[in-house]
């Protein structure tokens, strides 16, 4: 991801440009101007760069460094050794954990994108009162006021053997006895994750759609576009930024979420982040570090794809 900073044009620009065709003096002036701009750009960038270096680049560098160490039993050997990387990349278990993690993230992102878009569209277009729309949005955000673990655990009494869903299904005669299929598997994990992260998409999509001038929609309709054409050709492209921004942040959380898999998935399809936690927890730092680098790359890959779909910097 690159960072660009636009420096404001200075009043000095005008005379320089006006006399740009004149002799070597002006060329020198131009160079001085360019130098000054570069200096200003550098100064403006410095705080952010410093932060990125201290909070991101150095820790990442250290993680990469630790991944090159070796563990002789509980003893860590500070060396440059690719043995751990060999183990991590050749292990069928780690590969399957990486692929499963990616699969779950992609499926959940697809679900939250579709559901989030539908909900955002509903709020922006079908709820006439702004107040009500804002209130409904608040309701969607409300669960975020409680702890993340609580939000995960709440699905247990809903889907458990003695949960609400089983109770209803047995009561209406669809099931003869409570089913255990609603919890402790990958489907349950995907469902719960979708419910947790869909709100990341609803909000931005709602705001993006709300920002579209009503006249733009009216113009589209009056030129003969159907409701679907208006949505697809006018509203969706304008809401795309919100959709991608929502998915972008959901993806970051999804890659780091291991509690859902543990509590709702029952530890039967470990997430890469949970595996890192368990392995680091037993003191196997090099392996945990190598897996962290893989997790970082997977996350960067998905986020990079989002940036390809829509350059979020344009939203700033």
């Amino acid at each position: 991801m690159s960072i660009s900073v636009r420096t404001p044009a200075t009043p000095a620009d005008a005379p320089v440009r006006a006399g740009a065709t004149a002799g070597p003096d002006h060329a020198a002036q131009l160079r001085a101007q360019a130098r000054r701009r570069r200096r200003e750009t550098g100064l403006l960038l410095a705080p952010a760069l410093l932060w990125v270096v201290v909070a991101v680049a150095i820790p990442l560098g250290m993680i990469v460094w630790v991944s090159l160490w070796r563990a002789d039993g509980p003893t860590l050997v500070h060396t440059v050794d690719f043995g751990v990387w060999g183990d991590v990349l050749s292990s069928g278990a780690f590969r399957s954990i990486m692929l499963e993690t990616l699969k779950v993230v992609v499926i959940v992102l697809a679900i939250v994108a579709v559901v989030g878009l539908l909900c955002g569209y509903f709020l922006a277009r079908f709820v006439r009162s702004r107040r009500l729309a804002a209130m409904l949005l608040m309701l969607a955000i409300l669960p975020f006021w409680t702890s993340y673990v609580i939000r995960i655990i709440t699905w247990q009494p809903l889907f458990g053997n003695r949960g609400v869903l089983n109770y209803v299904l047995v009561k209406v005669g669809i099931l003869s006895e409570p089913a255990s299929a609603f919890l402790y598997n990958q489907t349950a994990t995907i469902f719960t994750m979708s419910s947790l992260y869909v709100v990341f998409v609803i909000g931005p999509v709602f705001w993006a759609l709300s920002r579209i001038d009503e006249d733009t929609i009216a113009a589209s309709r009056s030129l003969g576009a159907s409701a679907w054409q208006t949505f697809w050709r006018v509203e969706f492209p304008l809401a795309k930024g919100g959709l991608v921004a929502g998915c972008f942040f959901a993806a970051i959380f999804l890659f780091g979420d291991y509690a859902t898999e543990q509590l709702i998935g029952g530890g039967t399809n470990p997430a890469l982040s949970g595996t890192i936690r368990a392995i680091a927890g037993s003191g196997q730092w090099p392996t945990a570090a190598a897996l962290s680098v893989v997790l970082f790359l997977l996350t960067a890959l998905v986020l990079g794809l989002f940036m390809k779909i829509h350059d979020l910097r344009r939203e700033l």
Binding site: A93, G267, P270, T275
Partner: peptide, 11 residues
């Protein structure tokens, strides 16, 4: 132990 356990849970 740890390697085989990871394989077991991920299988």
């Amino acid at each position: 132990y740890s390697r085989l356990w990871t394989e077991f849970t991920a299988a």
